[in-house]
Design a binder for these strands. Structure first.
Lengths: 202, 202
DNA sequence: ATGTCATTCGAACGTTCGTTCGGTGAAAGC
DNA sequence: GCTTTCACCGAACGAACGTTCGAATGACAT
């Protein structure tokens, strides 16, 4: 029941809103901030969305669906437990680095939603987490390692979801290089010798 | 120029406020929430602090000073680069787990301050970060590892500072056990064989 | 030309926010 | 005994918030 131009305009609004939410945070951002950022009147915004919280929900829901689909696709190409986990890591980190605003909003505003919308997003989160926990569990079985797959999965998510606090995708370290380093670091630890790829010296 | 009973009352207020900030977030928390939580009138609160933001600042500043001092003390006992880094990790994780409210507020509300107060906290953050980067750098030198100490330090902070999202200090895994697992995981990776300590089977 | 519908707007509404004002009662100082 | 100081409060203030209202605009079908 929605028309194409309507959807395109909504998409623009969501993209702009994600940037503002990422920069200022959800709660400090006012509808007047979004009005300014989108070049639209306050009332005009309400033609596209029923309220501020729905904007946050739409940003999180779309982003999460994409990251889950991408991860499933990446993992499906794996040839071993180790390989599948490394592919998951590389996909998540690279996706994060390439969609910093949306992923920051997803990570940082995880509890800014309420009610059904919060429950919806939490369901996606659980699905994604179980996906990773399956992988860490398989890897540990293969290596007879005695970590807890549950703890390992959360530790890895922490490592990866923290990057919005410091990483600059336009800096000297491109997203794929960051992803590779994270994969090596998590699989083999800080004390392991050089990763298999050539040195990144420069 | 402050009296002892005044300071004690302020300490109570800060402890209560930290819990509320941790539970609801800084911005959604209203002064009326804090009034209710402390059992004090709205105006009464302002007898102890000049404003809401100062509460956040005091919580973050005190907590950060404590964590920095504790880390310096823990690291000083180390006998090698590896040992010092492991001690840093164990201290940070255990401290985090034992002061979840304050550390969550420190991690999650890192950019909720403004102006001079923000600059103050950021200075402490830089000091703490450089402390860890020195350690990851030393460890990598010793092992001729080819990771980036900068990236490794941020990855580790992410791993550790994420725990407020999932860890329950009163659950089956006590803070020290969590700290030990994190240390092993970061030093040797997920694929490493069992850690040197006895198995935690059960 | 007329009616319809999507799109957009300026202006306002009611609420809630952080903060302040003017005060009260009790203890402390002299 | 009078005053000062401290700890605290009920009530209110002005500002800012999310949201809504009623109307204007333009495109397009009839």
């Amino acid at each position: 029941m929605t028309s194409a131009p309507f959807d395109e305009r909504l998409e623009q609004i969501l993209a702009t809103t994600a940037k503002v939410f990422a920069a200022k945070g959800f709660h400090p951002t006012t509808m007047r901030d979004l009005s300014r950022a989108t070049g639209m009147s306050l009332a005009g915004l309400y033609h596209y969305i029923p309220g501020k919280e729905e904007l946050l929900y739409l940003i999180q829901e779309r982003c999460f669906q994409r990251v889950i689909a991408g991860a499933a696709s990446a993992v499906s190409l794996g040839t071993s437990a180790d390989d599948r986990l490394e592919r998951f890591i590389r996909h998540h980190v690279a996706f994060f680095a390439r969609h910093m605003s949306e992923m920051k909003v997803l990570s940082h505003e995880a509890n800014s939603l309420t009610g059904k919308r919060l429950a919806d997003i939490n369901a996606l989160k659980r699905r994604y987490f179980e996906m990773l926990r399956g992988l860490t569990s398989d890897v540990e079985s293969d290596h007879a390692a005695h970590h807890d797959p549950h703890v390992a999965a959360y530790a890895l998510f922490g490592m990866m979801n923290w990057i919005y606090n410091w990483y600059n995708p336009a800096g000297p370290l491109p997203p794929e290089a960051l992803a590779e380093r994270f994969a090596q670091l998590f699989m083999f630890g800080l004390t392991s010798p050089a990763p298999s790829t050539a040195s990144h010296g420069g």
